[in-house]
């Protein structure tokens, strides 16, 4: 049984923010209620159209992405996307980012009281903040702490706040400590790697290429803090999941692998389910 910050999850396999569409597209390949959780793409106070094309590029064993975080805004999300996800009995973690601490607090108030939201994941350091009004992206530990605290203060009991950290092996431990001190009940390690599009636009790098880097961050954070940690970055195979759980992560997030094979999460869920003894799920 996977327990994350007091939440009982059906599986340790969680869909990473921005890699499961609105949920509807992913549901074609496996029911959402079997997942540990579905993390929404990052939701902002106002709707965002997203950045110019190309938004994604293929790199060796990786994907570069500068989507500009398109989303319908919190009102649109609550009206059209959340109800459908809840109908599917998905466990919903809402990812948030904002232009200011005040906006973050407002988002937390709105989402924390919305029935069915299991947790809030603060995207404290988005690697691409987009051409629209730029979003906050924490570089310093105190900024991480401030963002987490702004959300934590507004959330009712029972709705934990998760901090999703930038996988910077040198500074991730400081960021992790700051997040925990500010009230983060769990950490996600981590976000996509800060990278750049060929034209110089800020981007994130994800996929198997970043797995070992993210793993180093995970190990350092696990040594430093006592809260549960969700491992993200480069997870694609059953072996990837087992390695992270063995090191002490309570769950994993699957992102870019879903864009390559939309059944990845469903396959990993099935392979890790202690009740199934399927021989049919090789390490791929």
């Amino acid at each position: 049984m996977t327990v994350l910050a007091g939440l009982r999850l059906a599986s340790p396999v969680v869909v990473a923010a921005g890699c499961g569409g609105t949920g509807r597209e992913l549901a074609a390949y496996g029911s959402l209620d079997a997942l540990g959780a579905f993390t929404t793409r990052t939701i902002t106070l106002d709707a965002r159209r997203g950045g110019p094309v190309p938004r994604l590029l293929e790199t060796p064993s990786g994907l570069l992405h500068a989507t500009g975080l398109p989303n319908p805004g919190v009102d649109g999300f609550l009206a059209t996307e959340l109800p459908w996800l809840l109908q599917q009995r998905a466990r919903v973690v809402v990812s948030v980012a904002a232009r200011s601490l005040g906006e973050l607090a407002e988002l937390a108030r709105r989402l924390g009281t919305a029935p069915g939201v299991s947790a809030i994941e603060v995207n404290v350091s988005p690697p691409d903040t987009g051409p629209e009004p730029e979003l906050m992206s924490a570089r310093e530990p105190f900024q991480v702490g401030a963002a987490v605290a702004a959300v934590e203060r507004e959330l009712p009991r029972g709705v934990p706040v998760l901090a999703k950290l930038r996988p910077d092996a040198v500074r991730v431990v400081e960021a992790a400590r700051a997040a925990v001190e500010a009230g983060a009940q769990a950490l996600v390690v981590g976000q996509a790697l800060p990278a750049s599009m060929p034209d110089g636009r800020a981007a994130g790098l994800s996929g198997p290429a970043v797995g070992p880097l993210a793993l180093r961050c995970l190990v350092e954070v696990l040594e430093a803090v006592d809260v549960p940690v969700v491992a993200g970055g480069g997870v694609a195979t059953v072996a990837d999941v087992r390695a992270r759980l063995a090191l002490g992560a309570v769950a994993v997030q699957v992102g870019a692998a879903l864009l390559h094979d939309p059944t990845t999460a469903a396959r990993l869920v099935a392979a890790l389910d202690p009740d199934t003894t399927s021989e049919e799920t090789p390490d791929r």
Partner: peptide, 15 residues
């Protein structure tokens, strides 16, 4: 025909 990455509606990369 626009450049696609996931082609399944997951990534929002094909506006």
């Amino acid at each position: 025909e626009q450049p696609l990455t996931c082609a399944t509606g997951l990534c929002h990369g094909c506006p």
